[in-house]
Design a protein around this nucleic acid. Sequence first.
DNA 1: TTTCATGTAACTTAGTTAGTTACGAATCTG
DNA 2: CAGATTCGTAACTAACTAAGTTACATGAAA
Lengths: 149, 149
Amino acid sequence: MKRNSRLSSTLHILVHMAEAPDKALTSEQLAAFIHTNPVVVRRTVAGLRKAGIVTSSRGHGGGWLLGRVPEKISLAEISAALGETMMPFSTEPESPGCLVEQAVIAALDDFRLEAERLLAEKLSQITLADLTADFRRRYDLIGVSSHAV
Amino acid sequence: MKRNSRLSSTLHILVHMAEAPDKALTSEQLAAFIHTNPVVVRRTVAGLRKAGIVTSSRGHGGGWLLGRVPEKISLAEISAALGETMMPFSTEPESPGCLVEQAVIAALDDFRLEAERLLAEKLSQITLADLTADFRRRYDLIGVSSHAV
DNA sequence: TTTCATGTAACTTAGTTAGTTACGAATCTG
DNA sequence: CAGATTCGTAACTAACTAAGTTACATGAAA
């Protein structure tokens, strides 16, 4: 897993899980999809479990399943569960008492608040089901073209 | 300068420059405002010079000045000149040929495009002049309250 | 020509995150 | 119950990024 590709990698995993709705996939299988280590998968997906997006079971036949139907899992939830933050700039005061800094921070915090609201709204309109639908569309296209050739 | 506070620190510097419109401020002076090193300032602000947001002059009496009036410097330009990226997630393919990954990347790239457009629009509506105005408002308030006490 | 200031390269240091190893806990199968 | 399987998690390592620092060349003013 490359740096900063947690959202992308996690979505990749989740689409694979959506495509195998009644078969628990192991961390090892999921890790293979994104070319990484099973422990990294468990660590990353742990946050999704707490949010109810996935469930896990131990032991023989155990592994990971979606916690609910893909239609009800939005990218906003996934991103939030991963603790991903768009807008990666700090507004921690470094010169307490400096009025210039206070004005800057106030402006940036306002912007951040509004921006995060906008982005969350956009992301909440995309569901895992949309991604699986797009995947199947691509899959069918390949199938057709293979047949044509 | 703390991690990921480049935008905030740079704005801090720029407001100070806007408040001293006819006096070139040295890297050392600017560095003092944000508690960092003159070289870090030069490095960071170098990008702004290329964008015409600031000008620099060497030698005796040299230093930094705004390249144009604060009313014509938007946060969108500053952020772009710093090379700051909101939306810090990668969409580099890691499994070329995987249709699941392609669907994920397509969705994220669409989202990113739209999101960056929205954010740039928001940021372009805030100018350095807005920040200095807010600073002065805060300054006057302190003055009033000090007088009252 | 001396002094001051930027421009920039090279190196060091600190912090973050992915990757790895190891092992305990839970669960299924025979 | 024994053994195999799989998650949960802690602890450590490695790689990468960005700030901080040192050093020195370049240019401009007094």
